[in-house]
Design a protein around this nucleic acid. Structure first.
Length: 565
RNA sequence: UGCCUGAUGGUGUAAUGGUAGCACGAGUGACUCUGGAUCACUUGGUCGAGGUUCGAACCCUCGUCGGGCAACCA
């Protein structure tokens, strides 16, 4: 069940809801709805998992049913308790709470008993071939596999061998247990799939109790059956596995859940494979699983995304059987929507350009009342100090501006947000480089608070920070990790990592922020006015704050520039 | 060349035999102390060919194109 109450009961429906409605109408499961989210604890959850989590827990909520969290931990060599913990944290962060918390490893004994039952029924056998032999005998997509001599072992011999496998008498790879189905089947997964292998490995939960571990295909369907799952929802690539789960369940004559497949999420400029994400982490291309550029739940959380935005995104993209490619801007739009309403505004200058108000008294300091969130009157206001020397954004000044630029330029007026209207009198240049190092401006005392009593229109309002009061902070600007839109379009022969974008992280070591943010704590989200939404990173220290840019604001001017250029 | 499966504006999704709608994007304008937000308008689609029907995105047939499947991974 979800702990969240923001999903409206009239939420748009999808084809899975329709199937469930059908089951409820026919009484197939007696009106019961029980789903589960079944990750393998071999990596951190990503946005694609979020889609599955919202789907499964959302269904439980919609139908007044239940949803389990089950770890499919059948491969001890790849799994770790760190992942078990992170997965639970991520599911909760998304706003969901599971009804049952289970592990496939809870079922190892039962699973083993069913394997023996399969042997007794003549439906499984111990194969002593090598890995390569098994592979070779399996055939190809267009060519039937061949049966080997082990396939006809007696029930007694199979049982004896299998029990000795469990007892630890054989080294890894000496034997496997295979389901006896059909070596000529058109669906290659039914060509006597391996269901148990010997692994003398320590399991994060069962320790050294086992040296024999079930394959995922063997454990998964049975686990769903044990838990009384009604709708086993999974991604499209498991569709072809369904006949195998059906065969396995029918072979031991137990309760039969209904598997339903949907298309996994693909995002532009994003890799969504745990294997590849692991590679990025291990190669230290990113700063761990929660690097804000990672599409992991931990990464986007650190980046500043909100659970509500994630849920909204999952709602927006829908659930179908079509394998598409969702534009990253849809995700970005979801956070902007949420943060626009909730994030307090603050002023910060990323690329500072110093200005001096020549007619403003030296040493004078005023405090201006600044609205915290124009979208939310209840957010109130705060005091921000103002003085003779200020920083403005370098991009807000142009010496020789094009027609469409209406910010500051020599001889031009601009409003400093919540403060005064100022006029640029002179641009001071470094004589050596020609670079503009400072602006000499005058302010209009009549415009205190940013108002124009004479009614004149000021075309542009820009943000600023008082130089002597400025808080020097580090700001990390993120853009997509990859430079190609569709990662799937990279041919197998090429290394996908060559498409990593060199500018996915740009660090600004010395941005200038208004002093009010000084006392905020890690995870604090705000809007730097006119720039974007930012989130206080855990790398912050008492001396230096670090902000992550969650997402930029929409930028009409950038669009104009792009068109012009 | 086998099996499974899918196809609706640029992208993602609704419409389940009866007016092709929504979101994002794009464009235009209004408003604005954020070139933000908001509001209005516009653009643009049923993969193709047949068939059934008064009527087809939807049902049938044949194509075309896409995705998945040959770990002792999940």
């Amino acid at each position: 069940m979800s702990t969240d109450s923001t999903i409206p009961p009239t939420a748009p429906t999808n084809f899975i809801h329709e199937i469930i409605d059908g089951h409820n109408a026919s009484g197939r499961f007696g009106g019961k709805v029980h789903t589960r989210f079944p990750p393998e604890p071999n990596g951190y959850l990503h946005i694609g998992h979020a889609k599955s989590i919202c789907l499964n827990f959302g269904i439980a909520k919609k139908y007044g049913g239940k949803c389990n969290l089950r770890f499919d931990d059948t491969n001890p060599t790849k799994e770790d308790i760190e992942y078990v913990n992170s997965i639970q944290e991520d599911v909760r962060w998304l706003g969901f709470e599971w009804d049952g918390l289970y592990y496939a490893s809870d079922y190892f004994e039962q699973l083993y008993q069913w394997a023996e039952l399969l042997i007794e029924k003549g439906k499984a056998y111990v194969d002593s071939s090598t890995l390569d032999e098994i592979r070779e005998q399996r055939g190809t997509v267009t060519q039937a596999g061949v049966e080997n001599q082990y396939r006809s072992r007696s029930v007694e011999e199979n049982l004896d061998l299998f029990r000795r496998m469990r007892a630890g008498e054989f080294p890894d790879g000496a034997h496997v247990l295979r389901a006896k189905i059909d070596m000529g089947h058109a669906n290659m997964l039914l060509r006597d799939p391996v269901i148990y292998r010997i692994r003398h490995a320590h399991h994060h939960r069962t320790g050294d109790a086992w040296c024999l571990y079930p394959m995922y295909d063997f454990a998964h369907g049975y686990s769903d059956s044990i838990e009384g799952i009604t709708h086993s929802i999974c991604t499209l690539e498991f569709e072809i596995h369904r006949p195998l789960y059906d065969w396995l369940i029918d072979a031991v004559e137990i309760y039969h859940p209904q598997q339903i497949e949907f298309a996994r999420l693909n995002l532009t400029y994003t890799v969504m494979s745990k294997r590849k994400l692991l590679e990025l982490v291990e190669a230290k291309i990113v700063d761990g699983w929660d690097d804000p550029r990672m599409p992991t739940i931990a990464g986007i959380r650190r980046r500043g995304y909100t659970p509500a935005a994630m849920r909204d995104f999952c709602e927006t993209i829908g659930v179908t059987r079509f394998n598409g490619l969702t534009d990253l801007v849809v995700l970005e739009n979801a956070v902007r929507n949420d943060l626009n309403k909730s994030a307090p505004r603050v002023m910060g200058v990323l690329k500072p350009l110093k200005i001096v108000l020549t007619n403003y008294p030296e040493g004078q300091v005023e405090e201006f009342d600044c609205v915290n969130n124009p979208e939310d009157p209840s957010a109130g206001s705060r005091k921000v100090p103002f003085s003779r020397e200020l920083y403005i954004e370098r991009d807000d000044f142009m010496e020789d501006p094009p027609k469409q630029f209406f910010r500051l330029a020599p001889g031009r007026e601009v409003r400093l947000r919540w403060a005064y209207v100022i006029k640029c009198e002179e641009a001071v240049k470094d004589p050596a480089t020609g670079e503009i190092v400072e602006l000499r401006c005058t302010y209009d005392p009549e415009t205190k608070g940013g108002n124009t009593p004479d009614g004149r229109k000021i075309k542009s309002t820009i943000h600023w920070v008082s130089a002597p009061h400025a808080l020097s902070t580090e700001v990390r600007l993120y853009s997509p990790l990859f430079s190609v839109e569709d990662l799937a379009s990279i041919p197998e022969s090429e290394d996908w990592k060559t498409y990593l974008s060199p500018t996915s992280l740009v660090v600004i070591p010395d941005a200038k922020l208004e002093p009010s943010v000084k006392t905020q704590s890690v995870g604090y989200r705000c809007q730097f006015e006119r720039l974007g939404y930012f989130c206080l990173d855990r790398d912050s220290t008492g001396e230096k704050l670090v902000f992550n840019r969650t997402v930029t604001l929409k930028d009409e001017w950038a669009k104009i520039q792009k068109k012009g250029g």
